[in-house]
Amino acid sequence: MADHHDDLPKFCHPVPTKLLFGVFFALIFLTILTVVVSALAGSMGIPSAFMFPIAMTLATAKAFLVCAFFMHMWWDKSFNVIAFLSSLLFVSLFICMTLMDTGHYQSTIESYDVNQMPGVAELESEPAE
């Protein structure tokens, strides 16, 4: 997909200008789409529970475009791609583990009466300057 230049070294892949502009306009389109969907969600009858997945899907589509074409991942060595994508794996592990963990004791936190803690009553009555 890169321009073909015989005189360039083989690690040099200039991305065609048309492709770069195409990606840019696609990104702008997706950004506007995200804002419009978020603003019109109510009137379009999209349940609010779907809003978060929709917003994240659109963001991921944008992230894919940026990674693949602006960051040259499409033409990059697969080792670099694997290294980068593995970070996302660890991020998802990080998020899932902490969510599971806090999910287990959240009910305990919520059922705890903060006002029974020693000193809280005094703290609450101080001016919050």
């Binding site: 230049h5 360039l8 991305v15 990606v23 840019f24 990104l27 702008i28 940026v66």
Partner: peptide, 16 residues
């Protein structure tokens, strides 16, 4: 996003 586009164009210019 626009700055990303100009950055990508800058990389292309440097490559050429």
């Amino acid at each position: 996003l626009f700055s990303s586009l100009t950055m990508a164009l800058g990389v292309r210019s440097a490559q050429l």
